[in-house]
Design a protein around this nucleic acid. Structure first.
Lengths: 112, 112
DNA sequence: TCGTATACCTAGGTCTGCTATGCACAATTC
DNA sequence: GAATTGTGCATAGCAGACCTAGGTATACGA
């Protein structure tokens, strides 16, 4: 993965995955990697601080899995504000891609 | 412009514009804005440090316009290494877009 | 038992974009 | 001809975000 472009996308990717059901840190890294065809390898040093930020900002809320024994997992659930933010960020992302492609002279067919 | 996603793209955009002919700082901001349909407004505080970085790294070389009077302009010319870097970055950009769109569930038709 | 996978966390470094500011000349407007 | 806007370069210092590297711990297969 080229992390040059990653900055600013991590939170959107996390929100997207969280928007499809409660999830936890490690699962997010796996899912992002799977869905991007192996492209994204979210590092823990990026992921966990991002999750904490997003919780502080009210985009996510968290709870520890109720389990007496075994591995502990901290689950995250998207909030109403997180859902709104995701919509904004998805639109913003598509604008951004159009902007860059415009400068690069690339055409983006089919992407609205 | 949403500068959230911008990180890491500025240098590619500069390289692209410089690859089409010698240019200078102010002209780059105008060209980026024009070609992105008004989306990009490169700030001077981002642009000039980026140009200096890129020159240090050997991606660009600069020369002052030979002009006795009037405004002084510092022109930049892409180097062979800059050209190679641009190719790499363009490919990397397209991979990145595919990766993000994959996670977001967006299809990118026509973009290879 | 040892390695690998799963699972969380943080300190500190680095990079990059931004705001704010300063300097200077040109062109236009009043 | 004075004031404003546009063109043009530059830097200091702040803030944000990603990474490396390290720490802790359980589960499971060889």
């Amino acid at each position: 993965m080229d992390s040059r472009f990653l900055s600013g996308s991590v939170e959107m990717l996390i929100l997207q995955i969280a928007s499809e059901g409660d999830t936890y840190g490690y699962a997010i890294t796996q899912e992002a990697e799977r869905r991007s065809g192996g492209y994204f390898e979210l590092k823990e040093g990026s992921l966990y601080p991002a999750l904490h930020r997003m919780e502080r900002r009210g985009l996510l809320e968290s709870f520890w899995e109720a389990k007496e024994t075994g591995r502990r997992r901290k689950f995250y659930r998207i909030t109403a504000e997180g859902t709104r933010s995701l919509e904004v960020q998805r639109a913003s992302w598509q604008e951004f891609v159009r902007g860059v492609n415009g400068v690069l002279g690339l055409e983006a067919h089919g992407l609205t």
